[in-house]
Design a protein around this nucleic acid. Sequence first.
DNA 1: TGGGTATTAGTCAATTCTGACTAATACGGA
DNA 2: TCCGTATTAGTCAGAATTGACTAATACCCA
Lengths: 193, 193
Amino acid sequence: MRSSLDRPQSDAANWDERGLLLLGVLMMQDQHGYQINEFIERSLCRVTSMKKPTAYALLDRLADAGYISVHREQAGSRPQRKVYSITSSGQTLFYELLRTNLADASKATDEGDIGLMMLNYLDRESAIACLRERLNRLDALLDEAANVPPHGGKLSVDLALDHLLAIRRADRDWLASTIRRLERDAADAPDIE
Amino acid sequence: MRSSLDRPQSDAANWDERGLLLLGVLMMQDQHGYQINEFIERSLCRVTSMKKPTAYALLDRLADAGYISVHREQAGSRPQRKVYSITSSGQTLFYELLRTNLADASKATDEGDIGLMMLNYLDRESAIACLRERLNRLDALLDEAANVPPHGGKLSVDLALDHLLAIRRADRDWLASTIRRLERDAADAPDIE
DNA sequence: TGGGTATTAGTCAATTCTGACTAATACGGA
DNA sequence: TCCGTATTAGTCAGAATTGACTAATACCCA
């Protein structure tokens, strides 16, 4: 059970994110490939841009590694389906990836919100804990950025950094207020979930 | 002179961005490969994560396509250098890519600020025009996002979209205030540049 | 009957990116 | 003298992603 899916080299972040996405989709319910891809294309297109061949490849890998299981089934005379289900080791991996993803501060992007989307799978306390950690890291990043000396020179690196800083600050504010909201919800409706 | 560098398929956005980066670096002055890569690694690491082999490959392509020229030179008994210079067709491409990049609204990311970094290469009016277009597009995106019906369901897609929305709004605000600042500067010091 | 779209499952080649490596010289300090 | 770091230029295989494609059935509309 490694948190980055068995691959030797290369862009771990993306795999973790996309693995998390597929595992999360399978946490909802068992699904066959077509269904998964349709769902991603129709409902999650704003949150990810993963394409079909990538999904199939990842599903294969996850299956090889035992994080999901596959069985074939026939619905009428429709083409045969391959139904994927998450295994218990897959669930463990899912929670691991989810916590890591949620606590990761370095993503203020379109594609970085896979974890947020799965927030409901954690109990409120864990969710809040992860987001708090993310908030801390984000604050650290901001502190650090505030101490970068101005760059000068022909390229306006400083302008780009200022932009990044503005976005990170907004990210922090959003995060802080989201945490507050979660805490309020928890106080309103204790022990549910 | 195509704006996306001669490649048939595949991730045009990244190439354009990285091509823009290299061309921009060469706009400052002629440089040899080692110098370019050192500069990127030391000074631009916060704005891009392009690695050496990628840079070499792109330089080769740009050279093949005639956007930059190469000549060898010897400095003392140091290893021979390959010095790259931007050609006039390269400059044309540079400005094209720069305007496109600046006017593109869909990037609120770490890596999306290559264009901003090169803002100085445009005269103030053009720069402002590009950023205005970006602002318009961003507003359109925001309007559209505001009209996406709530998603519901087991995944909290809405939370993720809310996050994205918050960031986009911050992006817009930053952009608007940056434009105002540029306009003020233009009024203060007309005709310089 | 014929043609288009939906359902289901893929595959394959092309492309990009990068970690890790090689090579050869020079220079500075122990 | 020897070792490490700097200077300079790459290369190469491995990994990830995806556009475009194939295949076969079913259902619907004209």
